[in-house]
């Protein structure tokens, strides 16, 4: 069995655990914790998508991950600007 495949599967499992932790973070009381949890969830899902695309050879998973990273950053900054309430 390929060592790289084992490490990719291990990485996916680790980031799935982190996604659950990020979901728990997003359900805290304050709005800022919701933003932090959502940002963490965006990153973890992107890494999972890139890893799955590498394992199964699905090309458009990378495009989805790229769009997710870009839109996640834009959404986080926009929401943070809203809660700043200047």
């Amino acid at each position: 069995m390929n060592l790289l495949l084992i490490s990719k599967i291990f990485l996916i499992v680790a980031f799935v655990i982190f996604s659950i932790a990020a979901l728990r973070l997003a359900t805290h009381k304050s709005v800022a914790m919701g933003i932090i949890g959502t940002d963490a969830l965006t990153v973890s899902v992107s890494v999972i998508l890139v890893a799955l695309g590498g394992i199964y050879g699905i090309g458009f998973f990378r495009d989805i991950a790229l769009a997710l990273v870009l839109l996640g950053v834009v959404g986080t900054i926009a929401f943070a600007t809203v809660i700043r309430r200047d």
């Binding site: 800022a32 940002d39 986080t76 929401f79 943070a80 600007t81 809660i83 700043r84």
Partner: peptide, 8 residues
């Protein structure tokens, strides 16, 4: 995020 939390 830090800036928004501090001012909000």
């Amino acid at each position: 995020m830090a800036h928004g939390y501090f001012h909000g």
